[in-house]
Each structure stands twice: as C-alpha cells, then as structure tokens.
Design a protein around this nucleic acid. Structure first.
Length: 250
DNA sequence: TGCTCCATACTATTAAGTCA
DNA sequence: TGACTTAATAGTATGGAGCA
C-alpha cells in the first residue's frame, strides 16, 4: 500500500474527491489529511508519504506554494487537482515537477488514470531484486523544457495539443523544440503524442464500458473517424476488435 | 551551441460514403 | 445508429541550411 497525503482546505470537496476512487483497489491508502500548507509541511516532516494529492481549487497560489516547499527537499510524486487550464499556472506547476495537473472539472476517470501513472512510476522505482539495466541502456534525464513538454502532454491529453501551441507558450521556436524533443527522446513530438493517446485509449477500452466516441474524445480526438484510423494504424486492429479481444482474454 | 528561416513531407480535419 | 473507410485539403512538424 502506498501512503497518500491529501491536502484540501475544504472538507466537502475533500470527501467528494475521496468518494471518486476506490483507493484500496489501486493499492493506495490515504494516511493523512491537511487543510493548509503549514499543516501539510508539518505532516510531511513527521511521516513519509508515497504521494501528495493537492486540491488547489480554492487557492492556486497556496497549492503552488506547497509544491515549492515540498520540492525543496523531496521528489515525492505530486498530483494537483482543481487548477484552471491557464497555461501560466500549468507551466509553473510543471516547473515544480508535479506528476499531473488536473484542471477543473476533475473527472474520476482523469484522476484514476493519473493515479495509475504514479503507481506505475512508484512500482518502477521500487528496488528490484536483480537490477539488469546496462549502463548503455540508461537514458539520460530529459532537459527541463522537454520534461515540461512531456508533462504537459500527459496532463492535457484530452485537449487539442500541438507543438506549435506549446512552443509559443514557452517562447521557443517550434522547429527547434521539435528537434530538441526528438534528440532527447528518440521519437518525434507527434510520435510521443500518438503513443500517449493510444495507450490511454487502450486502457479505457480494457477497463471501462465507455463508447468509442467517448474514448476518442477523452484522448483528445474531436473526430471519431480520425481516431479509428489512428487506432488501427497503431494497434493493427480496430478499437472494437481490440475491446472484444480483451474481454475474451479476461 | 542555440537558435531561426523556409521548403516540403506529413498529419489532422472534414465530407461523403458503405456496412451491419 | 454506430462502426468504419476513403479521398481531398488545410495546417503543422520536420530537417537542411545558415546565422550569431
């Protein structure tokens, strides 16, 4: 069980968030609550947490301030909830290396996806019995700007994301940012975006009963036709066939 | 090394259609 | 009605060349 610290100044919204998810089923345990950053910091000093969940709905500044305080001496995963889609806020959150930024309204599907990503990360960072990673296979850490791009993609997957929008917001040349991304990640920005979208679509097909057009929407496709085409290109089978195969396999 | 410009290749979007 | 295909077009990303 991974221990979670949940920070939210409003008790009713805290309860609502906690009702959204079957935490135990995900392997998470909400160990402590805090209603403001000072209380959260005090708890953080006393106890070790695997994940910090911060609802910044009532004060964006307070939420970001707490991220900064945590980052001074810890790399614990942080998920921010209830922010606005304002790019300046997202950018600041990403600079604090938050693991996810879920803008209002927070849907349970978004939160559970986000939690699954963090759990995957935590599982990977757990000590393994026989570490086999050869030094030549180790990937160097991406530069801050590439990391911002990747985190933005993960956080805003359901939106219409383009490299142009991101590069404009970061005041980088689009061509330069695209090349820098490819140099560091060994895949183009579009390949990365497609990979993230398709993996999420596969998860939703496997784990939910959502209609295909709803899933297409959820992973950022406004046109279902285009989603069909890309999904088949990526997996080799149509979305429907993929779901049927998963049901048979279960 | 970090960045921009520009031509072109590629991708996303849209519309129109078929099939079950 | 939902799932899926195809083709045309507009917009975007990429890569070569070059500048500071």
């Amino acid at each position: 069980m991974y221990k979670v610290l949940h920070v939210d100044s409003d008790a009713s919204s805290r309860e609502a968030t906690e009702r959204m998810i079957d935490w135990a089923r995900l392997g998470l345990d909400i160990q402590a609550h805090a209603s403001h950053s000072a209380e959260a910091c005090a708890l953080f000093d006393k106890q070790r947490f695997s994940l910090v969940l911060i609802n910044m709905k009532h004060s964006h500044a307070e939420g970001l301030k707490l991220c900064g305080q945590i980052r001074q001496n810890s790399q614990v995963p942080i998920i921010l909830l209830g922010g606005s889609p304002d790019y300046a806020l997202v950018k600041q959150a990403l600079l604090y290396q938050v693991n996810d930024y879920l803008a209002e309204p927070v849907k349970s599907s978004h939160l559970s996806d986000s939690l699954r990503n963090v759990i995957e990360l935590l599982n990977r960072s757990e000590p393994v019995a026989s570490p086999q990673t050869a030094p030549s296979q180790e990937r160097s850490k991406p530069s801050p700007v590439v990391e911002i791009v990747m985190r933005y993609v993960q956080a805003e997957l359901h939106q219409n994301i383009t490299l142009k929008k991101i590069s404009d917001a970061l005041h980088f040349n689009c061509a330069y940012l695209g090349r820098k991304f490819k140099n560091e990640e060994n895949m183009s920005f579009n390949e990365y975006l497609l990979q993230q979208r398709m993996e999420k679509a596969k998860r939703l097909l496997e784990q939910t009963d959502m209609r295909i057009y709803e899933i297409a929407n959820e992973v950022g496709y406004t046109e279902i036709d285009w989603f069909y085409k890309k999904f088949k290109e990526y997996t080799g089978i149509s979305a429907n066939e993929y779901r049927k195969k998963q049901v048979v396999a279960r």
